Amino acid sequence: MDILFYTVVGLIAATFGSLVGLGGGIIIVPALVYLGPYFIGESIPISTAVGTSLAVLIFTALSSTVTFFKQKRVDFKSGWLLFITCGPGAMLGSYTTQYVNAKSFQLGFGIFMLFMAVLLILRDYLKPLDIKWSIERTYTDGKGQTFQYGYSVLPVLVIGLAVGFIAGLFGVGGGALLVPVMVILFRYPPHVATATSMFVILLSALMGSTTHFALGEVNLWMVLGLAPTAIVGGWLGAVIASRLGSKKLLWVLRVTFLLVALKMIWEGAFLS
């Protein structure tokens, strides 16, 4: 039963996460915490769920980044710039996890997920801001359409720090914040934003999971159970992103995030 559980969770989380640049941790953490007792036969401490999720994200992000790289959609220059602060931020967030009690974590994580659900809903309606940035880039897709986008160093470094801290603290990739910011604020083409986000997630997950491992918050057996299908899902999500529209899958994510967010907020705020 536990093998089937790991297979399904790893595949679904990685496929959805890679498809929209989230990483998949937003699905793995609640699955381990809420479904673990039923399918694995044991309760999973929140800190362990976070650390294990971040370790699995390494495999998801690596698989999807390689696929996106072959499609020439990863902006490595801005990705490395984001990582300057995202990496240390992930380590700081990972270290902070041990000081957050279970109820506070549930409440905070629920609010965070609710915010992400709202961002995903608004993503179809918000238009990119017309800001003149100091660094301008261009991208031409497979259909010959050229996109103009840009950024400045200081805003990117600040955003990288915030995304990294959230990634380490909650065991998620941080792409739920990074992708909308890249699309709306910096005018990145969605496919470039998704691909570059997965590259940043790969780097931040490496650093964040190292901290969790040092704190004894990574279950290696769970990582081994989740990693194989996470690799497949990372590749599958990147392939789907290049071939199909993601509106239907995005609505599945929106509804899922909303329901899990409300559940975590309720338990964190009202249950003893």
Results as ranks from 00 to 15, higher is better:
113 M>N: 05
62 L>M: 14
51 G>S: 11
92 L>I: 12
47 S>L: 01
51 G>C: 02
102 A>M: 03
85 T>F: 03
104 S>C: 02
88 P>D: 07
70 K>L: 09
68 F>S: 04
45 P>G: 01
101 N>D: 15
83 F>C: 12
114 L>R: 04
59 F>C: 09
43 S>D: 07
115 F>W: 05
54 L>H: 12
114 L>V: 09
113 M>S: 06
46 I>A: 01
79 G>P: 14
43 S>W: 00
75 D>P: 04
101 N>I: 05
84 I>R: 12
84 I>T: 10
105 F>C: 07
53 S>Y: 04
109 F>S: 15
88 P>S: 07
104 S>G: 10
72 K>V: 12
106 Q>R: 10
105 F>S: 01
62 L>R: 06
103 K>P: 07
66 V>M: 11
84 I>P: 13
64 S>A: 07
104 S>H: 14
87 G>L: 13
91 M>V: 14
45 P>A: 02
89 G>A: 04
58 I>S: 02
86 C>M: 12
91 M>W: 14
47 S>G: 10
96 T>I: 03
85 T>E: 05
95 Y>T: 01
105 F>Y: 09
76 F>E: 02
87 G>H: 05
104 S>E: 02
113 M>I: 12
57 L>Q: 11
75 D>K: 05
68 F>T: 00
60 T>L: 09
106 Q>N: 13
79 G>M: 13
80 W>L: 13
57 L>A: 04
84 I>S: 09
95 Y>H: 08
100 V>F: 13
95 Y>I: 00
81 L>G: 15
48 T>C: 00
91 M>E: 11
92 L>V: 15
93 G>T: 10
99 Y>K: 08
62 L>V: 07
89 G>K: 04
72 K>L: 09
72 K>R: 11
56 V>H: 08
108 G>E: 02
86 C>P: 00
95 Y>E: 03
71 Q>F: 12
44 I>D: 06
81 L>K: 08
97 T>P: 09
118 V>T: 12
109 F>G: 11
65 T>V: 05
70 K>V: 10
117 A>C: 05
59 F>Q: 03
59 F>N: 06
49 A>F: 03
79 G>L: 06
58 I>L: 01
77 K>N: 14
83 F>R: 02
84 I>A: 15
83 F>Q: 02
104 S>Q: 11
99 Y>M: 01
99 Y>I: 03
79 G>Y: 06
56 V>M: 15
49 A>M: 00
116 M>Q: 14
88 P>I: 11
72 K>C: 09
69 F>C: 01
81 L>Q: 13
69 F>S: 14
58 I>Q: 00
86 C>N: 11
79 G>V: 10
101 N>M: 02
89 G>F: 13
72 K>Q: 12
70 K>F: 04
79 G>D: 13
84 I>F: 14
81 L>D: 08
98 Q>W: 09
79 G>K: 14
97 T>S: 09
81 L>S: 11
92 L>G: 04
44 I>L: 04
68 F>Y: 08
110 G>T: 06
69 F>N: 05
118 V>E: 05
44 I>P: 00
84 I>C: 13
110 G>I: 07
65 T>N: 06
67 T>P: 00
112 F>T: 03
58 I>R: 00
72 K>H: 15
72 K>M: 11
61 A>E: 07
61 A>L: 07
85 T>R: 00
79 G>F: 05
73 R>F: 05
72 K>G: 11
78 S>W: 10
107 L>Y: 08
